[in-house]
Design a protein around this nucleic acid. Structure first.
Length: 421
RNA sequence: GUGGGAGUAGCUCAGUUGGUUAGAGCACCAGAUUGUGGCUCUGGGGGUCGUGGGUUCAAGUCCCAUCUUCCACCCCA
C-alpha cells in the first residue's frame, strides 16, 4: 500500500457517513431549538491560546497537542478542544459588545496526540455549546438540559448525569489547601502519579483509579464541604432547577474534570457497560476563563459531546437510525438508440425534484437492472425503441415488481404516491 | 509515554512438523438464446501473505526490527 491514513485517524465511508449526518443533524437542530447560533472557528490557533486557556499543567497541553511551526515560524496548534477558540473569537469579534448572554454552538474535528483505543482517536469530533455573560444557575441548567436532551433525542440508553461543584476562586484554594494537608499525612502511601498531583493539583487525586488511593481518598474533605456560601447557593439552585425539569442526576464528588478552567458546576454524562471510555460528553462553568484570556470578567458555561463515542454507543446499543434516503428512480436504457432520450429523461426527472441516476458503463439491460437494485433504487424507468415510438416510459416498482407504461410527465406523480405512503 | 493481543483477496477467515503455480465463503464482473433486478447455476478478475532485514537448499510458516490495528493504563470526548 502506497499510503495509509495517519495513525488514529478514520475515513468515514458512505454507509457510516449517513449516520454521522443524522447525529450532526440532531445536534444542530437541538442547538437551534435552544436558541444557540453556530460559530465556526479555525482548526488551528496560536499555541499560546491553548497553553493559557486550557492550562499548562493539563495533560492536553503538556503531552497531547499537535504543535507545528508554519513557514513564517509562527507557533501553531491543531485545536485540542473547542472552548478556548470560541472564547478567543468572542473576544476578537463584536460578539462581546452585543446583547448578552451570547449563546454559541460548534461542531467539528479536534486533535490530540494520544494512543488510539476504543472511543479515542487523534482526530475526533465534538459538538459543543457555550453561554457567555451570565452566572445565573438557570444558565447551568439550560446547558445541562441541552446535553441530556441530546442523548434522549438520539435514543441513547443507560446514560447518567454526574454533577459536582468545585468552587470558585474564593473557595477553591480552601479546598486545595484542605486536600493537600489531608493527603500530605499519607503522601508515601499514594501512587507515584498522585504524589506528583499533590504538588500541582490535589483535586485530581480524588478521581485516581488506584484502589489504594481510592481507599485513602474516602476520608478526604470533599469539594462540596468546602464551598463558600455563594457557591453552595449556586449549586443548590442548579439542583433545584434540574428537579423542576425532572432531570435525574447523581452528585459525584469524585468528578473533577481535567481542564483547568472549570469553576463551580462541572458535569459529565457517562454510559455504563460500554468500554473504558464511558464518558460521552461533559462540561462545566468557567467563570474566570474569559478574563484569563484578556477579556472583561465574563461568567460562562459550556458543554461538549464526543461524537465518535456517541456513535459507538449507539452502534453498541443497536439504537435505531432513520432509513437512508434511497434513489427514487434509476433510468435504464434498453438499447443504444435510446441513449439520448435516456439522458434527457434523467435530467428531466432530476429537475422535477426526484433523485435519479443511470448506468455509465454501457451495460446490458439485465446488468442495469441488477445495478439499480443494488443501488436500492425504488423505481426503474425503462426506455427503449418501443417506448420512444409511443412517447412513453416503462416504470417498474422494484419493491412490488409491478410495471406500467406512463408518459414521462406522469413520473413525478406516480413516484409521489409511493413517497407519501 | 507504558503494557498485552493481532496483521494472508474489498470483507470474514483456512493454510498441517518450513517443501512445487497460496485457498474457501461473501462481495465484484460476465454468461445461462429474443428487452427486465432479488433466488439458483456456470465462468472470470483480484493477493510483492503489513513492511524491511536475518536463518535456511527452501519462509505465509522460524528469529529481529519497524509500521498499523485492537484492547487496557495515564488522561480525556
Amino acid at each position: 500500500m502506497l499510503t495509509t491514513r495517519p495513525r488514529g485517524t478514520n475515513d468515514v465511508l458512505p454507509e457510516e457517513a449517513f449516520r454521522w449526518q443524522y447525529v450532526e443533524g440532531v445536534f444542530r437542530r437541538l442547538c437551534q431549538d435552544y436558541g444557540f447560533a453556530e460559530i465556526r472557528t479555525p482548526i488551528f490557533e496560536h499555541t499560546e491560546l491553548f497553553e493559557r486557556g486550557v492550562g499548562e499543567i493539563t495533560d492536553i497541553v503538556a503531552k497531547e497537542m499537535y504543535n507545528f511551526f508554519d513557514r513564517s515560524n509562527r507557533k501553531l496548534t491543531l485545536r485540542p478542544e473547542g472552548t478556548a477558540a470560541v472564547v478567543r473569537a468572542y473576544l476578537e469579534s463584536g460578539l462581546k459588545s452585543g446583547p448578552h448572554p451570547v449563546k454559541l454552538y460548534y461542531l467539528g474535528p479536534m486533535f490530540r496526540y494520544d494512543r488510539p483505543q476504543a472511543g479515542r482517536y487523534r482526530q475526533f469530533h465534538q459538538g459543543g455549546v457555550e453561554v457567555f455573560g451570565t452566572d445565573d444557575p438557570e444558565a447551568d441548567t439550560e446547558v445541562i438540559a441541552l446535553a441530556v436532551d441530546f442523548y434522549r433525542r438520539l435514543g441513547l440508553q443507560n446514560f447518567e448525569l454526574h454533577l459536582n461543584s468545585i468552587g470558585c476562586k474564593v473557595c477553591r484554594p480552601v479546598l486545595k489547601e484542605n486536600l493537600s494537608s489531608f493527603f500530605k499525612i499519607r503522601q508515601k502511601e499514594l501512587c507515584p502519579n498522585c504524589q506528583e498531583r499533590l504538588e500541582y493539583n490535589p483535586l485530581r487525586i480524588l478521581d485516581c483509579k488506584e484502589p489504594k488511593d481510592q481507599e485513602i481518598a474516602k476520608g478526604a474533605p470533599d469539594s462540596l464541604s468546602c464551598l463558600c456560601p455563594s457557591c453552595i447557593a449556586h449549586f443548590e439552585a442548579v439542583l433545584g432547577y434540574l428537579e423542576v425539569l425532572k432531570i435525574p442526576y447523581l452528585i459525584d464528588k469524585q468528578l473533577v474534570r481535567g481542564l483547568d478552567y472549570y469553576t463551580r458546576t462541572t458535569f459529565e454524562i457517562m454510559v455504563a457497560d460500554t468500554w473504558a471510555q464511558s464518558s460521552v460528553g461533559g462540561g462545566g462553568r468557567y467563570d474566570d476563563l474569559v478574563a484569563a484570556l484578556g477579556g472583561p470578567p465574563t461568567p460562562s458555561i459550556g458543554f461538549a459531546v464526543g461524537l465518535e463515542r456517541v456513535l459507538l454507543t449507539m452502534n453498541k446499543q443497536n439504537t435505531p437510525f432513520p432509513a437512508p434516503k434511497n434513489l427514487d428512480v434509476f433510468i435504464v436504457e434498453a438499447d443504444k438508440e435510446a441513449s439520448r432520450a435516456a439522458l434527457e429523461l434523467l435530467f428531466f426527472v432530476r429537475a422535477q425534484g426526484l433523485s435519479a441516476d443511470k448506468d455509465f458503463l454501457g451495460r446490458s439491460l439485465k446488468a442495469q437492472m441488477k445495478y439499480a437494485a443494488k443501488k436500492k433504487a425504488r423505481f426503474v424507468a425503462i426506455l427503449g425503441k418501443e417506448e420512444i415510438n409511443r412517447q412513453v416510459v416503462s416504470l417498474k416498482d422494484l419493491a412490488s415488481g409491478e410495471q406500467k407504461e406512463i408518459f414521462p410527465a406522469e413520473i413525478k406523480e406516480e413516484i409521489g404516491k409511493y413517497k407519501k405512503a
